[in-house]
């Protein structure tokens, strides 16, 4: 089987698997990364979003071959409790979730937005998160949290 090389959260990876398998399947299966969540399998909900380059994409909809030589960030690569990403700090400060199943994908979309646009407006945040579904109704808190993180990053 051909192998596909990419960088995952900064570490070089070499995966031997059918290149048509979805990235989500590879991440959650052989690579044991449970940060990206399965929601629909059709790229419609954003629960499995990861960052490839500077864009958030649905990993369930992304074939393995297409990430060859790319930089991939999963929610695990965003930050840790010891060294949190400003977004993670802001989501805690704003208590910006209820069940939290969609949050890992939303953090990815938000992080990709802040890479491209460090000072987004509320409207721009909503646009950036529009492909992510949240069923609990925590949207407004999440938007506030993203803006708060952007402020914090600007102040540094």
């Amino acid at each position: 089987m051909p192998s596909v090389r990419f960088r995952l959260n900064g570490a070089e990876m070499d995966v031997d698997a059918d290149p048509d398998r979805s990235l989500l399947d590879i991440l959650r299966g052989p690579l044991g990364m449970t940060g990206p969540h399965f929601g629909c399998g059709a790229g419609e909900c954003g629960a499995c979003n990861v960052i490839i380059g500077d864009r958030a994409v649905a990993a369930c909809d992304t074939p393995l071959w297409s990430v060859a030589d790319k930089d991939i960030t999963t929610p695990e690569g965003l930050g840790t409790a010891e060294r949190p990403h400003p977004l993670q700090r802001a989501f805690i400060a704003e208590q910006a979730l209820q069940c939290g199943y969609c949050v890992s994908g939303i953090l990815m979309s938000a992080a990709a937005l802040l890479m491209r646009n460090p000072a987004p407006s509320g409207q721009e945040v909503k646009q950036a998160l529009d492909a992510n579904l949240c069923r609990c109704g925590s949207h407004n808190r999440m938007v506030r949290a993203v803006l708060r993180a952007a402020d914090e990053m600007a102040a540094r």
Binding site: T34, T74, P75, E76, A81, P84, I92, Q95, L97, G100
Partner: peptide, 15 residues
């Protein structure tokens, strides 16, 4: 329960 969910630590049954 929120820190686990924000830091992508396995907490859901799915994970």
């Amino acid at each position: 329960d929120i820190p686990d969910k924000v830091f992508a630590r396995p907490r859901f049954i799915h994970d």
